[in-house]
Simulated scan of single mutants.
Amino acid sequence: MKLLLIEDEPELADALAAALSKHAILTDHTSRLADAHELTLQNEYDAILLDRRLSDGEGLDFIPKLRRAGKNTPIIVLTARNQPMERVEGLNVGADDYLGKPFLVEELLARVRALLRRPAALPEQTLTIGRLLIDPVHLTVMIGSSRLDIPRRELLVLQALAKRKGRAVLRSMLEEAVYNYEEEIQSNAIDAHISRLRKRLAAAGAGVGIHNIRGVGYLLKEE
């Protein structure tokens, strides 16, 4: 799962990104609306977390602009402006949810998952291939009736491959799924994740294989 966080308090943004990463959720962060618009044009996000009081404007103004660009990404407003009529204003302008600061990370996670359970947000509740069953909302991987524990970045690789099962996935697409735009990516990072993931899947009898498509990327298919 990959989120865009639009928040101009650096300490809060860092803490929130760190907390979400423990749940295998990747976060791109920006403090400016102008940069947020560019990021949404260049990337696909599962949801957007949006503050209202930003250095270059009112966060709610970002919502209709995003919708006019044809993006229906779910948006949760995170703000200290939490009076009843302020919540009404946010929901009326197009926010999918509205959460007042301060908040518990657990509540935010529950709200994100609730949004992604909606059919319009997540057409496919689970990803299945071979004996693998991946729940992208709760970030779990099952093989038969047994849960397979996978480190966060490997899980993100597996999800990206499973979403396009039977089709080649570009290396650049895997990097986008696993790393945020501010991270420096080592040249062999994806290869290392794939190598470890192959070993885990084979040892667990997952019934799938990850194949290298030379010059293109990788492909996940049932064996």
Results as ranks from 00 to 15, higher is better:
residue 70 G to D: 05
residue 42 Q to K: 13
residue 145 S to Q: 14
residue 108 L to Q: 00
residue 16 L to W: 00
residue 20 L to P: 05
residue 174 L to I: 04
residue 161 L to K: 01
residue 101 K to Y: 08
residue 174 L to E: 04
residue 153 R to C: 00
residue 147 R to V: 09
residue 171 R to N: 13
residue 182 E to H: 14
residue 117 R to W: 06
residue 48 I to Y: 02
residue 100 G to A: 13
residue 221 K to G: 12
residue 14 D to I: 14
residue 78 L to G: 00
residue 173 M to P: 00
residue 206 A to G: 01
residue 109 L to P: 02
residue 169 V to Q: 09
residue 57 G to P: 04
residue 198 R to T: 00
residue 113 R to W: 11
residue 6 I to A: 03
residue 184 E to G: 01
residue 31 S to H: 08
residue 91 L to K: 11
residue 55 S to H: 11
residue 134 I to W: 03
residue 163 K to Q: 11
residue 98 Y to D: 03
residue 69 A to G: 09
residue 189 A to S: 13
residue 84 P to T: 05
residue 143 I to R: 12
residue 137 V to M: 00
residue 71 K to N: 13
residue 84 P to E: 02
residue 52 R to G: 00
residue 31 S to I: 04
residue 154 E to Q: 12
residue 70 G to A: 07
residue 34 A to G: 07
residue 28 D to C: 00
residue 50 L to G: 06
residue 38 E to F: 08
residue 118 R to N: 11
residue 51 D to T: 01
residue 160 A to L: 05
residue 76 I to P: 03
residue 91 L to P: 11
residue 45 Y to L: 00
residue 34 A to R: 14
residue 194 I to N: 01
residue 199 K to I: 12
residue 81 R to K: 10
residue 116 L to Y: 05
residue 81 R to L: 15
residue 71 K to Q: 12
residue 72 N to F: 12
residue 48 I to D: 04
residue 215 G to W: 05
residue 153 R to S: 09
residue 34 A to H: 06
residue 191 D to Y: 07
residue 199 K to P: 02
residue 192 A to M: 12
residue 202 A to W: 04
residue 104 L to N: 14
residue 47 A to G: 15
residue 182 E to I: 08
residue 58 E to I: 11
residue 19 A to C: 04
residue 137 V to I: 15
residue 108 L to K: 02
residue 100 G to F: 08
residue 115 L to T: 07
residue 4 L to I: 08
residue 146 S to T: 15
residue 164 R to E: 09
residue 219 L to M: 13
residue 37 H to I: 10
residue 110 A to R: 13
residue 188 N to T: 14
residue 125 Q to E: 14
residue 216 V to T: 07
residue 51 D to I: 10
residue 11 E to A: 15
residue 218 Y to Q: 01
residue 113 R to V: 06
residue 151 P to S: 10
residue 161 L to G: 06
residue 138 H to E: 15
residue 67 R to G: 04
residue 24 A to S: 15
residue 197 L to G: 04
residue 198 R to V: 01
residue 221 K to I: 03
residue 15 A to Q: 14
residue 173 M to D: 15
residue 21 S to C: 03
residue 141 V to C: 13
residue 124 E to D: 08
residue 38 E to R: 14
residue 41 L to K: 09
residue 97 D to Y: 02
residue 72 N to G: 06
residue 94 G to D: 07
residue 11 E to I: 14
residue 73 T to H: 01
residue 97 D to I: 07
residue 28 D to M: 04
residue 122 L to S: 13
residue 108 L to H: 01
residue 144 G to E: 10
residue 137 V to C: 08
residue 164 R to H: 10
residue 40 T to S: 06
residue 182 E to T: 13
